[in-house]
Design a protein around this nucleic acid. Structure first.
Lengths: 212, 212
DNA sequence: TAGATTGTTAATCGATTAACAATC
DNA sequence: TAGATTGTTAATCGATTAACAATC
């Protein structure tokens, strides 16, 4: 039994979490786990776990459960963590610098191969071992290294122009920290939005509207 | 027609985006918009927009549409942006510092009133005008200032202990940047997860599994 | 073999979309 | 008044949960 033809977004969004839990179980030395046990740990239904995993193939064994190490490897393969997708970061301000230094890209399937900033003063400085280049070098760089993912940490105002250039350069996907809605402007471009403002507003709503 | 008794999570998560679009329209000087026009802009169905807004009350006028300024104000009130919820940040590492400097808390309904870090060397330093305190002062601070939201930027390993202390101190909600699943351990606590790792893995999945 | 647990189909639940009567 | 567009009910679609036969 191999992969289903269509996999819903809801399932895909749960994959990283399964992957994470398998990592933890493995660290704890757990060799096997049943959907029932896992459901308690993850606060999901056992049914959902089995449905989800079965989208990608029969990883379990009836009467036994799931082999933790094997399942982790399988999910990792599905996501493609080992692929190390070429990634560039745009905007070396506070947020961009923090992500570069704080974030372990290879752990999450990516390799950070370049940083670009509009400010010429930053050119040739280094952040976490990656040197910052001028925006003018972007096109040439992309032609040579063909990055597939761009991390957008630039001001909202420049996001329209910059994303257009990047798409023109062959970038296929955006990890978008700006509040610019990239997906409204391109089809066939993969976008993962990290709208921190929206996230905090949601929290504020819940704080202000939950009856104590 | 006032607020519905139950509002689904899906609707709540769209509120900040409506709020954002109303802000933009207002800036552009648009006085009124119909659900049909807005649906084009936001890539939603007009039906969904009307359904969503009607959860909170009849903000529109038949035959006319929605008054942009009024709708923005209404949504702002619903979220509670003006309330400025007392917020503390835990962990003044790269990420914590970046969020403090980069992020405009008041714009998103919160006021950052304290930063705490386990490292005694950081005590009494300042980040973006807010001074860093020792973790030892956390309890006293909470008793005096009663912050409602805690932003967690600490290592995953300490997240269990720290969140427990915070809940004990009366903190009601977490903006959680760690990979620790707070909600698995407490009921009645509001959690907004920003699992950056999960987010990037989702992007990696899509990049690796989209047929070009 | 018997017990356990998966894979998978069927039933339920919730969210989105369509339709239209109410009304500005 | 007539046209436009909302508010709201009904229909559809998709995702979650339940049930159970297959099988290790």
């Amino acid at each position: 039994m191999s992969q289903k033809s269509y996999i819903s977004n809801s399932v895909i969004r749960r994959l990283p979490r399964y992957y994470r839990f398998m990592g933890e179980l493995q660290k704890e030395g757990t060799a096997k786990i049943s959907s029932a046990e896992l459901s308690v740990r993850m606060k999901l239904t056992a049914s959902q776990i089995r449905q989800d995993l079965n989208c990608f193939g029969g990883f379990g064994q009836q009467g036994y459960g799931y082999n933790v190490a094997e399942l982790r490897r399988e999910i990792g393969d599905i996501i493609g963590v080992e692929r190390r997708v070429g990634t560039i970061l745009l905007g070396a301000g506070n947020l961009g610098r923090a992500i570069t230094t704080y974030f372990d890209f290879p752990k999450y399937g990516c390799e950070l191969i370049g940083i670009f900033d509009a400010d010429p003063k930053l050119e040739n400085t280094e952040i976490a071992g990656v040197s910052v280049s001028s925006m003018l070098k972007l096109r040439t760089f992309c032609e040579q290294k063909s990055p597939e993912i761009a991390v957008l940490c630039i001001p909202k105002e420049s996001a329209g122009v910059v994303s257009k250039v990047l798409v023109g350069c062959g970038v296929k996907a955006f990890w978008n920290f700006t509040h610019y809605d990239i997906n409204l402007h391109f089809d066939d471009i993969i976008v993962e939005n990290v709208h921190l403002g929206d996230s905090l507003l949601t929290l504020a709503y819940n704080v202000n509207n939950t009856n104590k």
